[in-house]
Computed example of a mutant assay.
Amino acid sequence: MHRRFKYAWAIAVLVVLPDIVISASAPSGCTGSDDGWFSCDYAGMTQAADRPIDFADFSPAPLALNVYVNGLLPPIGDSQMFSPTFSTLDPASLDPNYHASLTLDCGQFGSIVMYAGVFANMSYIEKLKVRNCMTYVVPANVFQEFSSVDMFSLEGGAIDEVDPNAMAGLEVKPLRAGTHRPPRPQGRFKLLYTRFLAQAMPPGFLFNWKDLQHVSLVGADLKSINGDLFTFNIRLKTIDISDNHFASIPEVLFDGLESLAEVRMANIPWECTCDNAWFVAGALEKNISLRGDFQCADQEMTVAKYYYTNCVEVDMCKGTIGIALLEKCFTMITLLVYGLALVSLVLCAVSLGLIICTLKARSGTGQVRSRVRKGNKVVDLKVKSKSK
């Protein structure tokens, strides 16, 4: 009995001890778990003493931070959201199976105004997300403290003013070398139903990301797209510009994108003209897969059907020298055979005409022989024809 009690006590210690030793701790206004996933209510940190969020108060080190925000970032009088001690975090100490991530979440009706320097000391972050925020101002260089991220996402909300240099100093590119273990490198920018109030992409928004490999601009409320939108993203592999309001795309949009393999353009109100439907054949020539419904907005047909029905002259001869006539191809050999047959027909007609004319000529100047029966004999009579 004593031995059984000792074993039971040892098992209880093993079960309880990890919770005692590895219990998570977090700064005021933050909660988390012992696997490094934390949530902080930055909007609720109204006391200056609670700001900036102090790295030293986290245990273990924050692998994923979900921060609820609203208003000025940072508040007046502050220069940054996160304490300088965040810069001492060694990324190698984090779980390698996950991206080190930061999410700014505005909740249901939140809005933010960001200032340059707000993200100082956060260069260890690999995955950045801004969710459900009405963003009034995105100033120049506001994300430069991250240096480079593997994934950058904007989800929900809207964006008003964007400085042309807002993304300067930030790179979005694959960060991890290993491709056969999680997390796989992405090099992805994903905008999902974050509306641009100007209904157009801000100038230069993607220009700094030459190593970007995947881009999604879904539900951005875009009424038009400029031909230089992806000019500097020369390593793009996939593009998704679904759920927008533009009715056509520039013919040069995919020029220079030699690695581009797939383009998704679903739920677009296409204005079907031969000029607008250029991408049907253009994608085929560049070996790009097209994904989407591709329905003409004003006609009951797909863009591809419109293009091949109205914009393409079908080569009936398929490259062979010949003449297309009555939806058939007449090759040179066929034309030669038909030509010889026609010549033969003409020669036959001429010959027949000559024969007829010769017979008529003879009947007008020659003799006519007739036979008359006399009794049991047949007597040939030669009668000279009378000349007219």
Rank of each mutant, 00 (worst) to 15 (best):
W209P: 01
G256K: 01
S39D: 09
I112R: 05
F5G: 10
E313V: 14
D298I: 08
M81L: 15
A26R: 08
L197D: 04
L253N: 00
K210R: 13
D275L: 10
D50R: 13
V130F: 15
L212H: 06
I333Y: 10
S101P: 11
N208M: 05
T273Y: 07
V383D: 02
G178R: 12
F196H: 01
V280I: 15
V346I: 15
L222A: 07
P164W: 04
Q295T: 08
I249W: 06
T135I: 15
F55Y: 13
L326H: 10
W9C: 11
T320C: 00
A100Y: 07
I333M: 04
E126F: 06
G156D: 02
M151A: 13
V263C: 09
I333H: 09
I225Y: 06
V142M: 01
E251Y: 12
W37V: 14
I355Y: 14
M301E: 13
F38H: 12
L284P: 11
V280T: 04
R181K: 07
K190H: 14
L257K: 12
G204P: 07
S147C: 06
Q47W: 01
D35P: 05
L89N: 00
K386A: 05
R373T: 04
E155G: 00
W209D: 03
K318Y: 02
L197P: 01
V149D: 01
G187V: 10
R51H: 01
C348M: 15
G319Q: 11
V21E: 01
W270E: 05
S23Y: 11
G29E: 10
T231M: 09
D315W: 00
K223Y: 08
L336C: 14
L154H: 01
E327H: 14
D211R: 03
R195Q: 04
L352Y: 13
S148Y: 03
C296A: 02
T273V: 00
V172K: 02
P250W: 02
K360D: 08
N121Y: 13
S216N: 12
A297G: 03
V383S: 08
S93M: 14
V346W: 06
Q47R: 14
I333C: 08
M301K: 09
L359I: 08
V263N: 05
C317V: 02
I323T: 15
K328N: 14
L381F: 06
P139F: 06
R264F: 02
I321V: 09
T320D: 06
F82G: 01
K386W: 04
K127L: 12
M265V: 12
A361E: 06
V343A: 14
F55A: 15
I288V: 08
C106K: 07
Q295H: 05
T88Y: 02
R131C: 03
